[in-house]
């Protein structure tokens, strides 16, 4: 009797999980697998008759072609600097908002608006504000002699940095929120002990708060890095990858090749390389989290 109940329970749970697993497999994994298949072919939808198996050629092209190499470098530069800046800014804001008060909760709600707004609209706002001719920021900067004449988003030297700035504006609030949750779950007694010992604010931060926060920090980093690496919306709207290839990113390259030029084979290879990079970065960051966890719990 007991045995049959356990079996029925198992069957029930199995049936509850099955639809989602099958759905993700059919709509997610199956296309992914097909994409891996396509990536070994020279396959253009506009010239289907000329489809041919090319082995690893698409992948070789990604790493040898100057345009695609630039896109890879840009993606890494963008991810590194925008996530790094967001971490520093987000941590500072989280510390400022740490004390639990109605004021701080209300401020946080409004601070989160940039992260909820449509990313496409974010791109449009900044494109308008940074323009050198009429943009409210761009005009004053170029009038004061700071910044390029042609406009911050259209100059090869500044465009990528402007995209990093836009990303920081958009996602620092979310970073703040995640780190704030980490701060609020810190053990209160440890922090009070620090206060009694008469440690300075900086000592408390460096010796008490920061080590305890490492797991939260790395989890926030993992999450934001995965998203930043796939940046698309704001780049597509503001620069479209230009000038030349100065702000081209992997996602932008894949979307242009695949859905505008219908180079299915090459675009699939770009998508797979992006996925591989993200998986590698995420694994590395998660390994660091685990080590930080062991170090803290080991103490």
């Amino acid at each position: 009797m007991h045995y049959s109940f356990a079996n029925r329970r198992r069957l029930f749970l199995f049936l509850m999980a099955t639809p989602a697993v099958l759905y993700v497999a059919a709509v997610g994994l199956w296309p992914l697998a097909q994409g891996i298949g396509y990536s070994f072919y020279k396959y253009n939808l506009l010239r289907p008759a000329r489809t041919q198996f090319v082995g690893l050629q698409n992948y070789i092209d990604i790493f040898s072609d100057a345009t695609t190499r630039k896109a890879i470098l840009n993606t890494f530069q963008f991810t590194f600097f925008s996530v790094g800046l967001q971490l520093v800014l987000g941590f500072a804001l989280a510390l400022l908002l740490w004390r639990d008060s109605r004021f701080n909760r209300a401020v946080l709600a409004f601070l989160l608006i940039p992260s909820t707004i449509t990313p496409l609209v974010v791109g449009l706002i900044f494109k308008a504000m940074l323009g050198a001719d009429y943009g409210i920021i761009g005009y004053f900067l170029s009038d004061a002699g700071i910044g390029p004449r042609s406009g911050l988003l259209t100059d090869a030297g500044t465009a990528l940095w402007m995209l990093i700035l836009i990303d920081c504006w958009e996602w620092t609030p979310l970073m703040t929120l995640i780190l704030l949750a980490g701060l609020k779950s810190l053990p209160g007694d440890v922090l009070e002990a620090g206060q009694v010992d008469g440690a300075t604010a900086w000592q408390r931060f460096r010796l008490l708060i920061l080590p305890l926060m490492l797991p939260s920090v790395f989890l926030a980093l993992t999450l934001r890095t995965m998203d930043a690496f796939r940046v698309f919306d704001s780049v597509f709207v503001t620069t479209g990858g230009g000038p030349d290839d100065a702000t081209n990113t992997l996602m932008l390259l894949g979307v242009k090749e695949g859905l505008q030029f219908f180079n299915v084979g090459f675009a699939s290879a770009v998508g797979n390389v992006t996925l591989l990079f993200i998986a590698l970065i995420a694994t590395m960051l998660l390994l660091v989290v685990r080590r930080a966890d062991v170090r803290i719990n080991g103490k």
């Binding site: 296309p31 097909q34 396509y38 939808l45 796939r230 894949g254 998508g271 992006t274």
Partner: peptide, 14 residues
């Protein structure tokens, strides 16, 4: 973690 583009093209064809 999946970048949409990796699954989107085959899905588009489907």
């Amino acid at each position: 973690m999946i970048p949409a583009i990796a699954a989107l093209i085959p899905f588009y064809l489907l």
